[in-house]
């Protein structure tokens, strides 16, 4: 199993722990990740607000880099996945657009052909790798750990572009968590938005949403919240102390990246997965809940 790895900007700085944990987990599972050389930011759902054609063009270039490797493109970020898949869908459905985009790409010495798929780590686990195989790799079942699976918008919506599972009642996160031995809790905000993309222009609303999201998982009895998206993770973790100011109740809940949850079950120690880098400390909880952690 070999993929063209598109880390996305956050993995280089604020979510470096996701780079660390993704690489360790992939290696332990025998998934080969080849980082695309010269990848650029996907536009993070913003560049199309200035120039749609430019947004499509830069992602055509990113996808072309994976085509050069002749490997599916894998991301660990919901928004990167949506941005890349949006560009791909536009290009594959519109010959004229593809031609015009490729004129620009030609000057950069690359060509978009439309030959590779764009996928996300979560989908790879469920579909390409398989949960039975994943189960066999579990060294430390996460028994007794109650997780709230927070999908994040862009891995589900819009389904016309994402299309992996029913956005109204997805199950992939629960199936992975259960394969790892964890217990899933159902909570109101399971499919909610984290608000990250509007945290500057709509700070007040987004802080409120952050508090609601955290509280919802806590009220359902979760020990921690897990997400397949670094932007959701950042919003819910980094801004949690700010969001707390708007709430009387304690909203504190640790927020893990999906590959970190997988890594814990594969037997890695929290520190090895960069869990110590989170703003809300998850380590005391994991020490209490996990054998030998």
């Amino acid at each position: 199993m070999r993929y063209g790895f598109f880390p996305g900007c956050t993995l280089e700085s604020a979510a470096k722990e996701l780079m660390i944990s993704t690489k360790k987990v992939a290696a332990a599972l025998g998934i080969e990740l080849v980082e695309l050389e010269g990848w650029t930011c996907c536009g993070a759902s913003h560049i199309q607000d200035v120039d749609d054609f430019l947004a499509t063009s830069i992602n055509a270039r990113n996808i072309a880099l994976a085509e050069q490797l002749d490997a599916p493109l894998l991301t660990v970020c919901n928004t990167c996945t949506l941005m890349l898949r949006t560009a791909k869908q536009k290009l594959d459905r519109n010959e004229q657009l593809k031609k015009r985009v490729n004129q620009g790409l030609a000057e950069a010495g690359v060509e978009y052909r439309g030959t590779v798929e764009i996928t996300h780590f979560l989908w790879v686990l469920v579909k390409d790798y398989g949960l039975d195989r994943l189960k066999e790799k579990v060294k430390r079942p996460l028994e007794g750990l109650k997780v709230a699976n927070f999908y994040g918008c862009h891995i589900l919506r819009p389904p016309q572009i994402m299309g992996f599972e029913n956005p109204l009642n997805p199950q992939s996160m629960e199936r992975v968590a259960e394969a790892l031995g964890a217990e899933c809790v159902d909570f109101d905000q399971r499919l909610a938005c984290c608000g990250f993309h509007a945290v500057f222009p709509a700070e007040k609303e987004v802080m409120k949403l952050t508090g609601i999201n955290c509280l919802s998982s806590k009220d359902a009895g979760a020990d921690c919240l897990v997400t397949p998206c670094p932007l959701c993770q950042m919003q819910l973790d980094m801004y949690q102390p700010d969001a707390q100011r708007g709430f009387d109740q304690d909203i504190t809940v640790p927020i893990l990246h999906l590959p970190q949850l997988v890594g814990l079950a594969l037997g890695f120690e929290p520190a090895e997965l960069g869990i110590g880098r989170h703003i809300v400390d998850a380590i005391p909880l994991l020490r209490k809940k996990l054998v030998t952690a």
């Binding site: 759902s45 918008c153 862009h154 919506r157 819009p158 938005c193 993309h197 509007a198 222009p201 949403l209």
Partner: peptide, 12 residues
């Protein structure tokens, strides 16, 4: 206009 959360609920 810029306050949209990009949650994609409307298009979905």
């Amino acid at each position: 206009l810029w306050k949209c959360l990009h949650c994609m609920e409307c298009v979905t």
